[in-house]
Simulated assay, not measured.
Amino acid sequence: MPQKTLADTLAARETLYVNCGHPMCCKSTKLDIQALIDRLGPDHGSMHQDLVGRFGCSKCKAEGRHRSPVFFTCVPDYEGQQRARNRDWKPTFESTPSTS
């Protein structure tokens, strides 16, 4: 069983990008996690080793370059984490002693 599934990635509201590793290209594309789930299933792994064989760079292929490895970037839902962290925070308006 994979360490992390596509369903886990979707539930965590993370964003995945696939990036071309060719130095002349470096194209980056945001992946549609729901479309991947529809195609591969919710239990398919979302880690690099689970996805790397399924992607190639269409730009490099069209330009006749050799197939370079792709890599993935996962961006956490920072905004959601910040909301959860501050949910119970309430400011206090206590005066602080002055140091005169």
Rank of each mutant, 00 (worst) to 15 (best):
K30V: 08
W89V: 09
A35S: 10
Q49V: 06
E14W: 08
V18P: 07
C74L: 08
D77W: 08
Q3N: 13
V70T: 05
C26T: 10
I37E: 02
E63C: 04
E94A: 15
L51V: 03
T5A: 04
L6S: 01
L16E: 09
T9R: 02
Y17E: 15
Y78T: 03
C20G: 00
G80I: 05
V52C: 12
R83W: 02
V70D: 05
D50P: 13
P69T: 10
F55M: 02
D32Y: 04
R39Q: 08
T73G: 03
Q81D: 13
C25S: 07
S28H: 07
Y78F: 14
V52E: 15
K61H: 09
L31N: 11
P69L: 12
R67T: 11
G64E: 06
C20N: 00
T5R: 11
C25W: 10
S100A: 05
E94N: 15
C57Y: 01
S58W: 03
S68F: 09
R87I: 01
D88T: 05
S98F: 11
M1L: 11
L6H: 11
D77K: 00
L6A: 09
F71Y: 15
L40W: 08
T99Y: 13
K30P: 00
F93N: 08
T9L: 12
G53S: 12
S58G: 03
D88A: 05
E94K: 14
K90P: 00
Y17R: 14
K61E: 12
R83P: 00
A35Q: 14
T99K: 12
R39M: 06
M1W: 11
W89Q: 04
Q81M: 15
L36Y: 02
L31A: 05
D32I: 11
S46H: 09
M24H: 13
G41F: 04
T99R: 04
T99H: 10
G45Q: 07
Q3K: 15
T29C: 00
Q34P: 02
D8G: 01
F72N: 09
H48F: 14
T73I: 13
T9M: 13
Y17C: 03
S68W: 14
R39W: 01
D50C: 06
H66Y: 09
R67E: 14
A62H: 08
C25E: 09
S95C: 03
Y17L: 15
T9W: 08
